[in-house]
Amino acid sequence: MKFGVVVFPGSNCDADCYWVIERVLRQPVRYLWHGDGEIPDVDCVILPGGFSYGDYLRAGAIARFSPIMRAVAQFAANGGLVLGICNGFQILLEAGLLPGAMRPNDSLRFRCCPTWLKVERYDTPFTCAVPRGRTLRIPIAHFEGNYYADPQQLRQLQRERQVVFRYATRDGRVVPEANPNGSLDNIAGIVNRAGNVLGMMPHPERCAEAVLGGEDGRYVFESLIAYWQQKAGDGPR
């Protein structure tokens, strides 16, 4: 399965994603430059964490107009798999590829800590390899992760089952005490209606090897590969 990792001016988790895909998962991966207007032959595009264009105005607000994002929108419309992590999630929201918006954390503090995530869906390309019932321990590191959707958008998210990850306690209870940033309904990650675009604030690439203190993040990448292999095996290539 071929991956592309987009590099924006200010991305700082691009190398982490690249490392995990190449060294941990042993899959082909290449960097995609924000100024390029086309996406080469890849099966999944990752928008990594960090910053983009200084995050002036709002996180992701400028990046969404970069040439690569027009190509990402087209790639997504054609069913391509897109994973936005942290700043990548913020860019997907600003681009309108996912519904809602991010506010500054309710604490007004940059939060950098492990979180526990309840997996709300196992039938997505991003979660199909997660063991059922397992609460994932994946770290966050952000100032603007306080997810907001207007009432109409929230109803749609619920109706279409678009919430994939919620901040929870270690044993999977979704309660206000487990919410690190004030996010609506403890939302940590959502998919689009078609299910091929995921945005998540926690960083799975930061916990995909035991040496880093946790491996739960690897499930997200392994899910993508399992999904893709299944799909490739199902029909003509």
Partner: peptide
Amino acid sequence: RLLANPVL
């Protein structure tokens, strides 16, 4: 388009 986020 840019200066405001119409969601928020």
